[in-house]
Computed example of a mutant assay.
Amino acid sequence: MLDGAVRLPRQLTGEVAVVTDVNEAAQPAKGGRDLLRIFRELKQAVVNDWGGVKPMAVEDDKEFLERKEKVAEFEQQLSNLSQQAESLVKAQQDMGETLGELGLAFVKLTKLETEGAMFEPQTIRANDMKNVATASVKASRLYRELNAQTVKHLDKLHEYLGVMLAVNSAFSDRSSALLTVQTLSSELVSLQSRIEKLEAAASKVFGGDRSRMRKIEELKETLKISEDAKSCAIREYERIKENNRTELERLDRERHEDFMGMVRGFVLNQAGYAEKMANTWEKLAEETSGYANDAS
């Protein structure tokens, strides 16, 4: 960056050729050392957004644009699902903790009733309280196990949020590569125009204008390098496009498999633990059925 800052004033005054290396020129300016190229790509980006003039190179892959829009929708859905998953996990955790505290309270109450028991009904009641405590503690443990499995299954949502960061980074690289092609295309037009103007001016001077002719030769050399750089930039852009296509197809395929597996595991997990909890409370209902008979 410091090197670019040193070169910038000389580039602006024309003492140093703007394009000196094909490989350097073909790469996006973002992260580079050539400040003038950074400014030119920034200018090109502003022209694209506000200039009202269609750039020479545009993103014309309709399939990609549709997929990009769907990826944005999928990312929003992921964010919403992630929030709902966190709410579910928090609710199950709270339920497990509440049942654990309830079981502990009945354990203490059972101990109190047992120590002060003087009559048989007190002993019976203490035994029933012990059953309630046992069921509550067991249900609490089941909720903790359920929650651990829920986190394991739904963590796939957070994994894909990370994948979305990589996808957006790939899209950004594609936009930067296209911006480089657009900038180089504009520079070529500008260089060609400058050469034509200088040639027209030099032709009016008898015997030629040596300074202008020297400048024309320098610009033609820069033009040649810029043309080569544009070709390299186009190849890089096409490489990124092909990579995007391949990766998006792989994402669609793996996403379907991953989410089917996640949903299947989540549903089976919820159903399995719901059955275990139902058996726990059903057993407690049988053990305390006498109270229902007394009430009737």
Rank of each mutant, 00 (worst) to 15 (best):
G31Q: 02
N48P: 00
V58I: 11
V22H: 03
K241P: 00
E257T: 13
D49E: 15
G14D: 04
A274M: 08
A295S: 06
A148R: 11
V151N: 10
L142Y: 06
L188Y: 02
R37Y: 11
E249V: 09
G31R: 05
I38R: 11
N168L: 07
S140M: 09
V71S: 10
Y143L: 11
Y160V: 05
S172A: 15
M95P: 00
L284H: 10
S169D: 11
D128E: 15
A139P: 02
V267F: 02
F119E: 10
A5S: 06
F171V: 09
V71N: 08
G290I: 08
F206E: 14
R37W: 14
K224A: 07
A202D: 07
A166D: 15
E159N: 13
T150P: 00
P28W: 03
S185E: 06
L219V: 02
A139E: 03
L104W: 02
E247F: 13
W50T: 08
K54C: 01
T246R: 14
N279E: 12
N269W: 02
D128I: 12
K204P: 00
T222G: 09
L65S: 02
M1D: 06
R264D: 10
S87H: 13
E115Q: 09
E242A: 15
A91F: 01
S79Y: 07
E75T: 11
R255P: 01
R210C: 00
F119V: 12
V6Y: 06
D294V: 14
R245Y: 10
Q192W: 06
N23Q: 14
M213K: 13
R141C: 08
A278M: 12
G272M: 08
E41F: 01
K276W: 08
F39V: 09
A26V: 02
M164I: 10
R194F: 03
E227R: 13
E282F: 14
M95A: 15
L178I: 01
S186Y: 07
A278K: 14
V19A: 01
I234K: 09
E15F: 05
A139K: 02
S296F: 15
V151D: 02
V16Q: 08
N244I: 13
L157A: 05
G31E: 03
M262F: 03
N23H: 11
F266P: 00
S172R: 14
R253V: 02
R10C: 07
D173G: 06
A26N: 05
K108V: 08
G261K: 07
V167I: 15
I234D: 01
G4K: 11
L104C: 06
L12R: 04
A295M: 13
A170E: 09
Q76T: 12
K54L: 04
E101W: 07
E101I: 10
G52Q: 01
R40F: 15
R239I: 06
K111L: 14
A177H: 08
I124G: 03
P121D: 05
E254R: 08
T150R: 08
L198C: 01
E238I: 09
K156H: 04
R141D: 14
E286V: 09
I195H: 04
V163F: 06
Y273K: 09
F266A: 08
R210K: 14
W50G: 00
D173H: 04
D94V: 10
A57V: 06
E75K: 15
Y143M: 15
M129Q: 11
S193Q: 02
L8T: 03
E75M: 12
D94S: 14
